[in-house]
């Protein structure tokens, strides 16, 4: 009995918060997705699956899903490999290990908005005295309008470097934690059996032992890729809306549901449900493939 009370004392507030601020809105959003809900959250006109059909035949939404599937296919492995490499490096050094760990982890503590503004306004601005353009200038190159140019699409360079800088440290920490849980005697046994340190032990000892961590990291990376919003909104968004390229699904839905003159919660919710199902589907498939 006492235990029961303590349980609810500790869990209760979180459960209530979760219910009120997460599950009720999710349920409500599901409900809205079946209604014509323009400028209202208590709609009366039931439209069945029409919002879903609209969204799935809607050019911009589909193209943003497509773009971000490509983005995920690119950024997930890249972040994974780089974070793992960083973790292996930092984990090997005996000297100042915690210093390097902290230094690489530090960007995670930086606000996405602040980092976006630094990238956009100071490093990759398009005028000749921007940092990147100054460096180009040393080699006699013309200034590049980094966030504007669409051929070649330099804005991807801005967005990908920004995302890597912000995220790598966090995943590196996850990998280091995983690495430190691998028992040393496995490596010793492998050496006795003639495995060479380096690629062989990485392939046959480290990677299999890191499987749980790897699955978690891949899942988080994938979800983060589809949920991209902050840095895209702050780097490419203007007061006149968002350009039609590199437009994350969430930004498109944000303008649909909350844009001025928009307030179309029916289509917005339907899009959100589609996106959720997509993430869940891809995650399940990925989990199946990896843990097989």
């Amino acid at each position: 009995m006492r235990n029961g009370r303590a349980f609810w004392l500790f869990v209760g507030p979180f459960a209530v918060g979760l219910l009120v601020f997460v599950y009720v809105p999710i349920g409500w959003s599901l409900l809205l997705s079946f209604f014509d809900a323009r400028n209202t959250v208590t709609p009366t006109e039931f439209v069945g699956l029409r919002n879903y059909v609209d969204m799935l035949t809607d050019g911009p939404f589909l193209s943003s899903l497509g773009t971000f599937s490509v983005f995920a296919a690119f950024i997930v492995p890249l972040t994974f490999v780089l974070a793992l490499a960083l973790a292996l490096l930092v984990n090997q050094i005996g000297f100042m290990q915690s210093f390097f760990r902290s230094v690489f982890f530090l960007p995670t503590a930086c606000s996405y908005v602040v980092a976006s503004l630094v990238w956009k306004l100071s490093i990759f601005n398009g005028v000749r005295f921007g940092l990147a353009n100054t460096v180009l200038g040393w080699f006699g190159a013309e200034p590049v309008a980094w966030t504007v140019s669409t051929s070649p699409p330099w804005y991807w360079l801005v967005l990908v470097t920004l995302r890597l800088w912000l995220q790598l440290g966090f995943y590196m920490i996850l990998f280091i934690a995983g690495l430190q849980r691998i028992p040393q005697h496995l490596y010793e046994a492998a050496w006795i059996d003639g495995a060479r340190p380096g690629w062989q032990t990485l392939r046959y000892i480290t990677m299999p032992q890191l499987r749980t961590t790897s699955v978690a990291v891949l899942l988080l990376l994938l979800i983060a890729a589809y949920q991209a919003f902050d840095e895209f909104y702050n780097v490419l968004g203007t007061d006149r809306g968002y350009p039609p390229f590199a437009r994350p699904p969430l930004i498109y839905l944000y303008y649909t549901a909350l844009g001025s003159g928009g307030q179309d919660f029916g289509h917005g919710s339907a899009g959100a449900v589609i996106l959720t199902l997509l993430i869940a589907g891809v995650t399940l498939v990925q989990g199946k493939v990896i843990t097989r």
Binding site: S151, P244, T256, G259
Partner: peptide, 21 residues
């Protein structure tokens, strides 16, 4: 009566013409 849907469609079109040709 220039709603968000129309504005997005028009601005996207203009942006693709101007920036992507």
């Amino acid at each position: 009566d220039w709603t968000q849907v129309m504005r997005t469609a028009f601005n996207d079109a203009v942006s693709r013409v101007v920036r992507d040709g």
